[in-house]
Design a binder for these strands. Structure first.
Lengths: 109, 109
DNA sequence: ACTAGTACATAGTAACACTGAATAGTGGCG
DNA sequence: CGCCACTATTCAGTGTTACTATGTACTAGT
């Protein structure tokens, strides 16, 4: 992946994952696969798992274990109230940034 | 500043500064003041200077010193060809991210 | 047994923004 | 004169984040 994308994902990837979880609960492997499909070419698996552990420790998600037909049990994460709040805050921050950058992009030409 | 904003600025702030420099040459103090006006409430001064040194070392900008009426001489940065190229790459990456996040935002409600 | 696919975890590294302080020059005020 | 405010740059130390690379573990197919 490009170095720029790597840096730009910092802070953003967490919002992306929270947004995914706001649609429906999901587990790490599933989220990674989804991201790759969507064009985040090779987000490292470890990255997603580390992120999930972080948001869990901050109390933004609830966790439940479900047995898998193939392989070890899945840790299914779901967004709780606090996570929902954090996601909304994320969207506010994101909106501010996009607004500023749009203005810059217009002015730059 | 919010922690979310801090993390989201990683990678983005560099693009913002390059975009500013693409409009016209500027020096650190000026850029910091401009950012604060635009609502990046309290971006640390040190942050901008460190970023400018980084992009200088990567050869994205040219530097000239000009005496100031008040205070030490200004280091005026201007975007060169390589910087312009980097800025365009930044816009491509940014566009991809915004597209993905817009889709997520729609789907999430 | 061996391989591939599923699923999670983690130690170490690099990059970036922040904190907090230092340095340096100019002008105004008591 | 001494002090403060404003302009302007620099730097060492810190925290957070994503990546790299690897390891563990379970199942199914050959």
């Amino acid at each position: 992946m490009g170095k720029q994308m790597t840096e730009m994902l910092k802070g953003t990837l967490e919002g992306i994952v929270l947004a995914i979880l706001s649609v429906r609960p999901a587990y790490g492997y599933e989220i990674t696969a989804w991201l790759r499909e969507k064009g985040f070419s090779d987000i490292a698996e470890g990255t997603v798992y580390a992120l999930l552990i972080r948001v869990e420790q901050r109390g933004l998600v609830d966790v439940e274990k479900f047995p898998s037909e193939k392989g070890p049990p899945r840790k299914v994460y779901s967004l709780n109230a606090q996570g929902q709040e954090c996601l909304e805050e994320f969207w506010r921050t994101w909106s501010f940034l996009t607004k500023q950058l749009e203005q810059l992009r217009e002015g730059g030409r």
